[in-house]
């Protein structure tokens, strides 16, 4: 028998080098940033970087589940803009009836989550019930959401009423124990996402479906429902990200959330989630988001390279991350 060669049940593997790669890259970036600019590790700068990462971060956590189960969502940036537009219009419309106050802000938040849920549900139903490729579905809804928000704004900007804006501002600018709200919410989302991916049926099913949806189907997994849920979850998280984002500027326009989808997908890939699905790593996604923001931040703080080259460096890192992934899978 083979008992002798079967290792103990409790034996847990350390993450492999390729899994730690993004983490090492993040540490390198921090060291680099600190050596280039004294201001880099200041509380102000760290808060700034993390708070800006939070929007993309929350979306990217949701995107991790979508990609892990073999899907894709290109519509999230436009969706965020659309949700922001509807949310602001809704709050402005409710203002005469409800007056400036916490209930109005809560109503706005409810609108954001509701619209996010519906948008995600729409994407999900088109993918699962109409059986259209996720790429095609979300390419379509990306255009639809973007055009709708531009139409709602009549080509300009939708602005939140000034009084409400003053009340709502602290959701972005204030925090708890000196930590900004977006950072706290992002941290909660990330931890919950990591736990859901690793320790719940939902996460396991996402991986199984992405790995081979036929096997999942034959194994009594409700493939359609899990797929649908990943898009709904992503829609809700886009809504949540928008709730944190709107108080920052207090407005929405046709260019809100531009290219967020690509940043979110890039963060997921850099973090080690397989683009073809089957393997998801939420903490990796968080690392990926931080890497992308840090590059941006360092280029602005340090005078080494033009900040205009930000996209170039991010692009190189994305391609490099995928090359690393391929090396991993072919050696396995």
């Amino acid at each position: 028998m083979s008992d002798a060669v079967i290792q103990s049940a409790a034996g847990r593997r350390l993450p492999s080098l390729s899994a730690l790669g993004p983490l090492l890259a993040l540490i390198l970036l921090v060291v680099l940033g600190a050596s280039l600019n004294d201001n880099f590790l200041s509380a102000g700068n760290v808060t700034n970087v993390l708070a800006r990462s939070a929007f993309i971060g929350m979306i990217a956590v949701g995107m991790t589940f979508v990609i892990t189960s073999g899907g894709l969502d290109l519509s999230v940036g436009s969706m965020a803009a659309f949700i922001a537009g509807v949310m602001i219009l809704g709050m402005n419309a409710l203002l005469p009836a409800m007056g400036v106050g916490v209930p109005l802000v809560l109503a706005g938040m409810g609108i954001a989550l509701g619209v996010g849920l519906l948008a995600g549900l729409g994407n999900g139903l088109l993918v699962t019930k109409a059986r259209i490729e996720p790429f095609i579905v979300t390419l379509g809804t990306m255009g639809i959401f973007r055009s709708l928000v531009t139409w709602l704004a009549d080509g300009g900007t939708i602005s939140l009423d000034f009084g409400v804006r003053q009340l709502y501002r602290p959701v972005y600018y204030s925090g708890l124990f000196g930590i900004a709200w977006p950072i706290i919410v992002f941290a909660i989302v990330a931890i919950a996402g990591q736990v859901a991916m690793r320790h719940t049926r939902f996460g396991r099913y996402c991986e199984a479906i992405g790995s081979n949806d036929k096997v999942a189907l034959y194994s009594a997994v409700n493939v359609e429902r899990i797929r649908l849920l990943t898009y709904v979850l992503l829609g809700l998280l886009v809504g949540l990200a928008t709730i944190m984002y709107v108080p920052r500027l207090g407005s929405a326009s046709g260019s809100t959330g531009m290219l967020w989808e690509l940043e979110a997908i890039a963060a997921v890939i850099i973090g080690g989630t397989a683009l073809k699905g089957g393997y998801g790593r939420v903490w990796g996604t968080v690392v990926g988001v931080l890497i992308l923001s840090l590059i941006d931040n360092i280029l602005i703080l340090a005078d080494l390279v033009s900040p205009y080259l930000n996209g170039t460096i991010q692009g190189v890192i994305i391609v490099f991350a995928v090359v690393l992934q391929r090396g991993k899978s072919s050696s396995a």
Binding site: A208, N212, V215
Partner: peptide, 19 residues
Amino acid sequence: ERGLLLDKTLRENLTLSTL
């Protein structure tokens, strides 16, 4: 193609249908 997830471990395969 329909029975097992070839890129997953024994444990994940064993329990998939009775999770």
